[in-house]
């Protein structure tokens, strides 16, 4: 599948934003980090900026962005529509919780309930994003039970790194939180390794034989393409550029996004507050780099059943 940059940015940026909001609610609920107005406001502003930028960028790849509002109408059948509805609905409790926690101190009062609703809706929105891909049977590597957990796991891990980085500016990163974030980050990448292992060993779902029904005669090969130039389906669904680098890119993503991020977080947890800022931001940059490569691979490595009509032998 063609890795559209707008969709890569949307899923990673909004994922981190939603994840950060969830952690903010959890921290407020547990009272672990003193939610000073400055820290709370910073997390809210950065998260909402990431979510909003992501949502806007997702409309850039539309043929008719001015009609994007219509995408809210088919939530009964379409995961994309559900994602849009959930994303917009999530703004309301987030903003109410933000006002409550910044101006009325969220602990032990009614505002935290809006926080819990916000956190729930954040997870639902990320889950809808995952379901958009997981529900596409034509792309067997997406249509697996691991895709939704992966989207949620990476939203939570990148969101946690974001909160740690912002908190470090305010000298408010207890070591234990940074270490916990390191564990979550490694857990997310373990899940990714499981996903990679699964898609590498999965039996083909469809073949050139089943796509043409000519398997009764024998092995099926494309003799002549319908035309000698590309078409939309080949551009969008038959993306193979740089797929040969996939193995190396997986390693880079894992080392930078997983191991380097976790290492920087562990060090950040050991250092006194002022010095933790630099390492926390190293962790943030590593996590962002890793997740961008991971998301690029998610698209570039996925094979679409329609490619069977253009020379692929199995998907």
């Amino acid at each position: 599948m063609n890795p559209a940059y707008s969709v890569i940015f949307f899923t990673t940026a909004s994922g981190a934003g939603y994840g950060a909001i969830v952690w903010l609610v959890v921290l407020a609920l547990l009272g672990i980090v003193p939610l000073t107005p400055a820290l709370g406001a910073s997390v809210f502003v950065v998260s909402l900026a990431l979510i909003t930028a992501g949502l806007l960028s997702s409309t850039f790849h539309l043929g008719h962005p001015e009609r994007a509002w219509r995408a809210l109408s088919q939530w009964r059948s379409s995961w994309l529509s559900r994602e849009g509805v959930a994303a917009l609905a999530t703004y309301i409790p987030i903003l109410v919780f933000a006002v409550g926690s910044l101006f009325f101190s969220a602990h032990n009062n009614i505002w935290i309930w809006f926080g819990l609703i916000a956190a729930g809706l954040c997870l639902v929105t990320v889950g809808c994003t995952g379901m958009i891909y997981a529900s596409l049977r034509a792309i067997p590597r997406w249509s697996t039970p691991l895709v939704v957990p992966l989207y949620i796991a990476f939203a939570m891990s990148t969101g946690a790194v974001l909160v740690i980085a912002i908190a470090s500016i305010f000298w408010a990163t207890p070591g234990i939180l940074a270490w916990f974030t390191a564990v979550i980050t490694l857990a997310a990448w373990m899940l990714k390794i499981a996903y990679w292992r699964q898609i590498d060993t999965a039996k083909p779902v469809a073949t050139a034989e089943s796509a043409t029904g000519l398997g009764v005669i024998g092995k099926v090969r494309l003799l002549e393409s319908p035309h000698n130039s590309e078409n939309y389906v080949m551009r969008e669904m038959g993306y193979t550029i740089a797929r040969k680098h996939a193995a190396r890119l997986r390693k880079i993503a894992l080392v930078v996004g997983g191991i380097a991020t976790a290492l920087a977080l562990v060090i950040a947890g050991l250092l006194p507050a002022p010095y933790a800022i630099a390492t926390s931001f190293v962790a943030l940059i590593c996590a962002a780099t890793g997740i961008l490569i991971e998301r690029w691979l998610f698209f570039a490595e996925a094979r679409h059943a329609a490619s069977l009509y253009y020379g692929a032998s199995e998907v």
Binding site: M1, L62, G63, P65, R137, Y232, E236, M237, H304, A305
Partner: peptide, 27 residues
């Protein structure tokens, strides 16, 4: 008139039957 050109339908079709019109911005 109501297609936003998100292309998701073409991803969902295993048969590659839908084609996006880059000039019109619709499927």
């Amino acid at each position: 008139d109501t297609c936003i050109g998100c292309k998701l339908c073409s991803w969902a079709c295993p048969y590659g039957a839908r084609e996006y019109d880059y000039a019109d911005g619709v499927m």
